[in-house]
Every structure is written in structure tokens, then in C-alpha cells.
Design a protein around this nucleic acid. Structure first.
Length: 560
RNA sequence: GCGCCUGUAGCUCAGGUGGAUAGAGCAACGGACUUCUAAUCCGUGUGCCAGGGGUUCGAGUCCCUUCAGGCGCGCCA
């Protein structure tokens, strides 16, 4: 347990004991202990912690809150709690002021745990799967996929650091209608490249990338497939192109710092008969009916607006049917919690997907869909319209090339998933102070520089046992330590609330406090004892920044 | 028409499962480098938290409603 957490829970325990002993004494009346909180007040002048217990008890105890607070304080034991003093404030808050020396426990712990500092066990090893991007393999990755990649990957990292057992998964839509379209488009491009005047399918994939893919194939096999019978030809083209496309997607994501544990093929669900099996199971349970020659799932039974087709009248299962089978497969693999990162344009599917999960007999809350709003791209103050159909969009590769992986990931993570994101290409690209990612990285570079120079000057990095941290009494030093102490809770909260953007907010705060410390307190000074204390603090701050940036997939440079 | 998301400072956004006087960055103005990187720091101010009701000790946060914007409502994925 983190230092903050253990101090906090100790005080909570003492408050409860005080209330109980007041009741036994006859000073206070209540049936059940209210669910009070002990939180960090917004205002520093309100102490390190504050509790609302007196206000919650007022009605039942038939006493004004401040009076209750007084009684509780009279019964409160401070022993072994770091409580320095208490006060009753406002409508009846009890404020706790700690002996600031508790902070001196923090830096040694950070240095000792190093890259493990900030981790916790709130996840209790529960198995969580995060499925994200899962882009159509017929195209290249665009801005929406980029946001999904950043959010999904960082969320997975944060969950991992909070003690969940995480699996990153990409669902490959390598079956169904769009593969048909893909095949026709490929065929047309192939034949066109061989000089034939074949028309391009109206609803085909117009992107330049298909032409490029086929060019490479023509170089390899020439016109060998020209004479092959149509169905087989398309099959061969798809197989080749799909492999190539997926490997490009894989490489693109790796380049973006995203590595998956599992690449799951939709086709494998068709091949293994899992879709049919799942539909039969739903039929047996009475959730499937036939109408107009198609099979429908009764999603309205689960609060959806309308029922949904699972098998079309032509006998082919829909994407939804495959997705149901896929989710059954997920739960069968033993995941306690399944998280999908979807674009907001898919929000209409959430209700029916959860309905299907419930119909299969799983608790629907075990599926969480994180919806992220769409990305609008700005350049030169104007919106860039993106269209996949016409092949005009900025790709993930181009983005990384233009603004770099660090800035791109930081920008995507900075905002909560449900905010509409305006991505300003010019700002992300600017190597200037306006760019928030540099602010954080710069703090890390400064720390590295100090440690580097300490070594050059023959000042060895002190051993934990030889440092007297009580020499750190400047406000900027204490505030920096306080922030460092928060990391484990910050990560845990980001994980439990599925809110990776809290990590960049924390990183920014931490970096800011370091910059203030840096300005006010010189580290490499003559006074060996103070120097060692500050070296350790700087070291701890560096570890924190590094650990947070790692979670969001941004590098922590040693110099800039 | 129905559903989901959003509406907080001039701009971009934070605001744990309701807490005390609503915050940051950018932009604007004025200061700080003989000293560990000035990509930094310090100072100066701005809000009917979209509007209106309600719940309670207490609401930016919860409920209802109106308005505005985005997205979705295919035997597509």
C-alpha cells in the first residue's frame, strides 16, 4: 500500500473508532455509521485531509454538524497517525493537518522501487482484455484509429500498472462483405495495371494504397493471375493483399509504440463454426426469430431500439453475428472484464452488444465500451475533411512522420475520450513552448542533466541510508514530494475510471512542480548533506516522470 | 422523430463515485539568465459552469425540461 493510502486509511479507522466510542459514551446517537469520506481538500488552507462525517450524521443525531465534529474530535486518538492538529471548519468539516515530516518517507521508497514505483494491486490480478483499433484491414490507419490506438494502449498500460492482468487484442475483420468489395477492387487494379480497360467498382476502395499493393504483386508474379478463373483469382489476390495489409498495419502500430498480444481473425470464427454455434445457442434460449427470410436477434428485449439481423435472407451471417460469437469467445477465454474502444459513430451498437452478452448468460457489466468522439484535423486554421471512400485522409504513418510519435500520443491522451478532439497539426509539430509534451520532457531532461553533472563533478549519487531528507524544508521541495507521493493513487484512479488522460494531467503538474523546485533550489551545491537530499529528490522526480510517460507511450529523453 | 455524446475564462480543455472561495495551458502585458539546459520561472484577470425548474445541510457534478453543436438510427462494417 502506498504511503498516502496507509496514512489515510489509518485516519479513517480512527474517525470510525472515535464515532463509535462517542456513541458508547452516550455523547452521540446513530444507528449505522454513515459512508463518510476522507478526502484531500481543494484548498490547501483546509488541511491535508478533510472529512464530512459530522454533516452526514447531523440529521440522525439531531445535532448541528459542528457540535458533532466537536464530540468526534474529543474521542479521536491521534496516536501513530501523523496528525499534527485538527480543526472544525465551514458547515462542519473536520480538517486534518499532518506533520509534514511524513513526506520524508517518500523519496527513498521511490528510489528503491524505481520503475515499479506507482504500481498497485487494486486490480487484484483480474483478467482484463482491451480490444482496440480493430481497423478494417482493407485500408490504412487514419486519425480515428490513431486516437483509438493511443487510448487503448495507454489504458492497457495503466490497468497493468494498477494490478490487472491485461491482454491487448486486435480483431481483424477479414471476412464478410467488405472483403468481397476488397476482392473486386483488387482485381480491377490488378487488371488495370496489366493494361486492361476494366471499370473500377462503384463502391470499391479508391485509395492509392491498393494500387501500390498490386504494383508490388505485378512485379512478383506478372500476369500469372490474369488467366486464372475469376473466383480463384480473387481469392489469391485477397490472400496476398490481406497479408500485406495486416503486416503494414502491424508495423505502423509498432512504430506508434503499440504492441498487441493477440491478433484475432474474424474468419477463424466462421471456419470454426463458432458463429453458427452461437446463433443456435441464442435460438435455443429463445432470443432468435425468423422474419422476411432472415434471422433476427431480439435486442429490444434488452433495451435496444430495434431488433437486429444476425443471418441475412441470403443465408450469410452479419457482422453483428460474428461479433456476438467473438464476445462469447472472449468470455470463454476467461476474461473477467472486457473493454472495447469504439469510435462514437458505433455507439448505436453498444446496447445490442451488451444485450447479446446478457442473452448468452454473462453479466453485461463485464463488457465496457469506451466511446471516443471523433477527431477533427486542423491545419493552417482550417478543418481537413477526411473521407476513406475517396482516399483523402491523413494516415497514422503520415501523422507520426509529421509530428513524431511522442507529440501524437501525448495529444491523443491529453483529452478525455468523450471530448471531441480538435487536433492541430501545426501546434503538435511546433518545437516550441506551446507544445505541452515538451514541457514534461524538458523536466526529465533537466533531471538527467543534473545527475549526469553530479557524476562528472565526482558527487556520487547517495545511498538511501546516507541521506538526511529532513533538510528539505523549502515549500517547493515539499510540494514536489507531495505530488510524487500521489502517483500510485493517480494511476489506480486512472485505471478504475478508465481515464488515461489523468496521466498526462498528472505529468504536467509534476513537471511544473519540478521546474519551480529547479528554479528555487540549486542541487549541485557545496553543502554535501543538502546536496544529497536534493539529488535524491531530483532522482525520485525523474523516476516518476519516466514511469508516467512510459504509461502513455511517450519517451523520456535524457537531453533535449 | 428517437437514441448516445458534448456545452465551464477570449481559445483549447481539467474538474475521483455531490463538499468549503470553480482551475490549468495558450493568447495579452510586465519582470527574472556571470550560477545544475530561459523548451524555464515570477507577477497582472477573466467566469449567470448554455437557460429554467427540482432533490439537500451543500450541485459544475444527481433528476426533469428547453436550447445549441456532433454522431447514430441498412438483411453495411
Amino acid at each position: 500500500m502506498s504511503i498516502v493510502k496507509s496514512i489515510q486509511s489509518k485516519i479513517i479507522e480512527r474517525i470510525g473508532q472515535a464515532a463509535n466510542s462517542a456513541r458508547e459514551n452516550g455523547d452521540l446517537q446513530f444507528e449505522k455509521m454513515p459512508e463518510f469520506v476522507l478526502e484531500v481538500p481543494r484548498e490547501k488552507t483546509h488541511g491535508d485531509f478533510a472529512t464530512n462525517i459530522a454533516m452526514l450524521m447531523a440529521r440522525e443525531a439531531k445535532m448541528p454538524p459542528r457540535k458533532i465534529a466537536e464530540i468526534i474530535l474529543r474521542h479521536l486518538s491521534n496516536e501513530g497517525t501523523w496528525i499534527d492538529r485538527t480543526e472544525i471548519a465551514g458547515p462542519g468539516f473536520i480538517n486534518f493537518f499532518l506533520d509534514y515530516r511524513w513526506l520524508y518517507q517518500v523519496p527513498p521508497q521511490v528510489v528503491e522501487l524505481n520503475e515499479n514505483y506507482g504500481k498497485s494491486q487494486v486490480g487484484q490480478g483480474k483478467k482484463v482484455q482491451v480490444e482496440f483499433v480493430s481497423a478494417n484491414p482493407t485500408g490504412v490507419l487514419h486519425m480515428g484509429n490513431a486516437r483509438g490506438a493511443a487510448i487503448g494502449d495507454s489504458l492497457a498500460s495503466v490497468l497493468g500498472a494498477a494490478g490487472f492482468s491485461v491482454t491487448r487484442e486486435f480483431y481483424i475483420n477479414d471476412a464478410g462483405n467488405q472483403i468481397e468489395k476488397f476482392a473486386k477492387s483488387l482485381e480491377a487494379r490488378y487488371l488495370q495495371l496489366l493494361g486492361e480497360a476494366v471499370p473500377f467498382p462503384e463502391d470499391g476502395y479508391h485509395g492509392q494504397d491498393l494500387i501500390d499493393t498490386m504494383k508490388v504483386l505485378v512485379e512478383k508474379v506478372g500476369d500469372k493471375y490474369k488467366s486464372v478463373e475469376e473466383e480463384l483469382r480473387r481469392e489469391l489476390l485477397v490472400k496476398y493483399a490481406l497479408e500485406e495489409k495486416i503486416s503494414v498495419i502491424k508495423k505502423t502500430l509498432e512504430n506508434f509504440g503499440v504492441n498487441y498480444d493477440i491478433w484475432f481473425s474474424e474468419q477463424s470464427l466462421h471456419d470454426g463454426g463458432e458463429i453458427e454455434k452461437t446463433i443456435n445457442e441464442l435460438r435455443d434460449k429463445g432470443f432468435i426469430y425468423e422474419s422476411e427470410g432472415a434471422l433476427w436477434f431480439k435486442s429490444t428485449r434488452f433495451g435496444d431500439e430495434k431488433d437486429e439481423v444476425v443471418v441475412r435472407s441470403n443465408g450469410l451471417p452479419t457482422y453483428f453475428a460474428a461479433d456476438i460469437a467473438y464476445h462469447k469467445n472472449k468470455f470463454q477465454r476467461g476474461f473477467d472484464q472486457v473493454i472495447n474502444i469504439w469510435g462514437a459513430d458505433h455507439h448505436g451498437h453498444v446496447a445490442r452488444m451488451k444485450g447479446a452478452v446478457q442473452a448468452l448468460g454473462y453479466e453485461p457489466d463485464r463488457l465496457t465500451v469506451v466511446l471516443m468522439q471523433l477527431v477533427r484535423l486542423f491545419k493552417g486554421g482550417e478543418i481537413l475533411r477526411m473521407s476513406k471512400r475517396t482516399g483523402t485522409y491523413v494516415t497514422l504513418n503520415e501523422l507520426v512522420e509529421e509530428v513524431g510519435k511522442d507529440a501524437a500520443r501525448y495529444f491523443f491522451i491529453m483529452r478525455s475520450p468523450d471530448s471531441h478532439l480538435d487536433f492541430d497539426l501545426d501546434l503538435a509539430k511546433s518545437q516550441s513552448a506551446d507544445n505541452p509534451v515538451f514541457y514534461v520532457q524538458y523536466a526529465h531532461a533537466r533531471i538527467s542533466s543534473i545527475l549526469r553533472q553530479a557524476e562528472e563533478m565526482g558527487y556520487s549519487i547517495p545511498q538511501v541510508s546516507n541521506v538526511d531528507l529532513s533538510l528539505l524544508t523549502e515549500q517547493s521541495e515539499l510540494e514536489l514530494i507531495r505530488k510524487i507521493a500521489d502517483l500510485p493513487e493517480e494511476i489506480a484512479n486512472a485505471a478504475l475510471n478508465l481515464a488515461p488522460h489523468r496521466m498526462t494531467a498528472y505529468a504536467h503538474d509534476l513537471a511544473g512542480l519540478f521546474h519551480v523546485f529547479y528554479t528555487n533550489c540549486r542541487v549541485l551545491i557545496e553543502d554535501e548533506k543538502l546536496r544529497n537530499a536534493r539529488l535524491m529528490l531530483a532522482q525520485a522526480a525523474g523516476i516518476c516522470i519516466r514511469n508516467v510517460l512510459r504509461l502513455v507511450g511517450v519517451s523520456a529523453p535524457d537531453q533535449m
